[in-house]
């Protein structure tokens, strides 16, 4: 019996160890392949040049700019709204209120709703409802300006994906602030808003920062929500106004690898674009980890 127990233990160790090994090996293999095969084409020129010859040569500069613009606009809208909503939920709302429970539940579960559904919402609400509405009022010749995909609608759609992430992260930080701080401030005669501004917000900055960076990291790699809300296959010029369409790194990868006329010829470009995309998302995630680390260290002191 003792012998059997021992062997079963070894067996379990072997099987579960193998599972772990397989996962880690897959991760390393993916990273290695992308780095090695993309590394050859990863040059300064690749980052700064326009695509050429029907996107079979040249660089990915417009896609980088488009991605950066997209996540910037997305954060400008999503982060303040998410932060303020979190402040409301922690500092103002009464938590036993059924409505708040419902909201919290919706926020938590919204994170699991497929991003393509957000894209649908963007199309149905921003473009067809609001955009077309504006066009009906503004343009008389029936020409579409806002009632079609553009960078504004794409960013707003992405902002919607961001809001739950920011709410959850900021809410967590706010709840971690000891109630004694609030009590002390209020006992000194500060108003609620003064307390929030002087005590709560400074303490919540690292949380807001982490939430933002995580959201940007996720947003930079998302493609599904922008598929039909503003991304373009190829544009000869950079977007200059909110009603312009834009290029995007993730979409570029998708297009080059599935829709291009000569997929094999652009293999190198594809790997290099993937490498750039990975570098962007991983460095953002890495920064988030660092910020969180220092935040914790500060909290301990």
């Amino acid at each position: 019996m003792k012998q059997k127990t021992k062997w079963l233990g070894y067996l379990l160790f072997g099987v579960t160890g193998l599972c772990t090994l397989l996962i880690v090996a897959a991760l390393i293999y993916m990273l290695a392949e992308i780095t090695v095969r993309g590394g050859h084409f990863f040059t300064w020129e690749f980052l700064t040049a326009n695509p050429e010859q029907g996107m079979t040569a040249g660089g990915i500069f417009p896609a980088i700019v488009g991605t950066v613009l997209l996540v910037l606009l997305m954060s400008i809208v999503g982060v303040p709204i998410g932060t303020i909503t979190a402040i409301y939920m922690v500092e103002y709302a009464k938590n036993d209120f059924i409505f708040m429970k419902l909201v919290r539940f919706a926020v938590n579960t919204l994170a699991g709703v497929p991003s393509i559904v957000f894209g649908l919402f963007g199309l149905g609400f921003f473009i067809q409802f609001i955009g077309s509405g504006i066009d009906k009022v503004v343009s008389t010749d029936g020409h579409l300006v806002w009632g079609q995909p553009n960078i504004l609608w794409a960013s707003l759609t992405m902002a919607l994906l961001t809001v739950p992430v920011v709410i959850v992260t900021v809410e967590e930080t706010l709840r971690a602030i000891p109630n004694e701080y609030r009590a002390a401030s209020l006992a000194l005669g500060a108003t609620k808003w003064q307390t929030i501004r002087k005590i709560i917000l400074p303490n919540a900055v690292p949380g807001i920062l982490t939430g933002t960076i995580l959201a940007i990291g996720r947003g930079a790699g998302e493609v599904a929500p922008i598929l039909f809300t503003g991304v373009a296959y190829f544009l000869p010029h950079l977007p200059s106004k909110l009603s312009d369409q834009f290029m995007n790194l993730g979409y570029h990868v998708y297009i080059l690898s599935t829709q291009s006329t000569d997929v094999e010829a652009t293999k190198g470009l594809q790997y290099a674009t993937v490498l750039v995309l990975l570098m962007v998302t991983f460095s953002l995630n890495f920064i988030a980890v660092i910020v969180r680390y220092f935040m914790r260290k500060k909290a301990i002191q």
Partner: peptide, 21 residues
């Protein structure tokens, strides 16, 4: 954290990896 690193891969990258490798 190493395994969680996998969740940092954008899905288009994993799709690309599937498509090629």
């Amino acid at each position: 954290p190493v395994i969680e690193l996998l969740s940092g891969f954008p899905s288009v990258v994993i799709g690309f990896f599937a498509l090629t490798t």
